[in-house]
Design a protein around this nucleic acid. Structure first.
Length: 213
DNA sequence: GACCAGGCACATC
DNA sequence: GATGTGCATGGT
C-alpha cells in the first residue's frame, strides 16, 4: 500500500468515525488569529475565557488591540497563561496587520500564501504552527497544521518519529494528499479529536478507531 | 499538590 | 544543529 493511500484511508476512517468537526471555533478571522496565538501551549478552555474578556471590553479588533496598553491587554488575557509574553505577541501580530494590510484580514487574504506565511513567521511570537493555524483557519488557505496532537497520533501509529521536523511532518501530507483546504481543515481537527479521546498522555492509545490499519 | 496543556524565543555549547 | 530554559493559568 502506498503512503499516499494510507493517509487518505486514515482520513476516511476518522471522518466516518467522528464526522465533521466544524473548526475553528471563532466568529471572525481576526478572532481566529487571536485564538491561535493565545492557545500556544494552552488548553482551549482557558483561551475562551481570555477571548470573552477581550469581547466584553470591545477590543477584539485590530484597532482595539493596537490601541490598548500592553499591560492592560495582559490583564485581560490572564486566564490563557503566559499573559505578559502573549500580550506582546498579540501586539506584534496586530502591528503587522495594521502596517502591511491596513488592519484588514480581508486584505491579507488577497496576498499569496507563501508571502503571507513568510511575513507571519517574521513576527516575534509567531512560529510555524501559529502561522499555519492562522493561514488555514482564519484565511482559509491550504496548509497543514502540525501540532502536538498531530505528532502524538502519527508517532503512536508508527507513521513518523515523534521528533521529526515540522517540515518533515508537513511533507508527509503534501506528498500524500490533494492540496485542499477543506480536507486539511477537517483532517487536523479530526487528529485533535482522536488524540483527546484515544491517544492521551499515556504511552498507548485505547479503543483507537485506527487500530488494525 | 503534582502534573499537564493545540509554542516560541533565546542562550549556550 | 541539538539541547535546555523561561513564560503562567486553570483543570484533573
Amino acid at each position: 500500500m502506498k503512503k499516499s493511500n494510507k493517509l487518505q484511508r486514515i482520513y476516511n476512517r476518522l471522518y466516518k468515525h467522528f464526522g465533521p468537526q466544524h473548526w475553528w471555533p471563532g466568529e471572525t478571522p481576526f478572532e481566529v488569529a487571536v485564538g491561535a496565538i493565545l492557545t500556544q501551549y494552552t488548553k482551549w478552555g482557558n483561551v475562551e475565557k481570555a477571548i470573552l474578556n477581550l469581547k466584553r471590553e470591545g477590543v477584539l479588533t485590530a484597532g482595539g488591540l493596537n490601541n490598548i496598553a500592553v499591560n492592560e491587554l495582559a490583564s485581560l488575557i490572564r486566564p490563557s497563561g503566559y499573559f505578559n509574553i502573549k500580550a506582546k505577541r498579540l501586539k506584534n501580530f496586530t502591528e503587522l496587520l495594521v502596517t502591511e494590510y491596513r488592519g484588514s484580514m480581508k486584505k491579507m487574504l488577497k496576498e499569496d500564501l507563501v508571502i503571507i506565511r513568510g511575513k507571519l513567521l517574521s513576527v516575534n511570537g509567531i512560529g510555524p504552527e501559529t502561522a499555519d493555524s492562522i493561514i488555514l483557519y482564519a484565511l482559509e488557505k491550504p496548509v497543514f497544521v502540525i501540532d502536538a496532537y498531530t505528532k502524538r497520533v502519527l508517532s503512536r501509529h508508527n507513521i513518523m518519529e515523534y521528533d521529526s521536523s515540522y517540515d518533515g511532518y508537513q511533507r508527509l501530507f503534501y506528498e500524500g494528499l490533494e492540496r485542499d483546504r477543506h480536507l486539511f481543515n477537517e483532517y487536523h481537527a479530526l487528529f485533535v479529536r482522536l488524540a483527546k479521546e484515544h491517544c492521551k498522555t499515556r504511552p498507548i492509545c485505547i479503543g483507537c478507531p485506527l487500530d488494525g490499519m
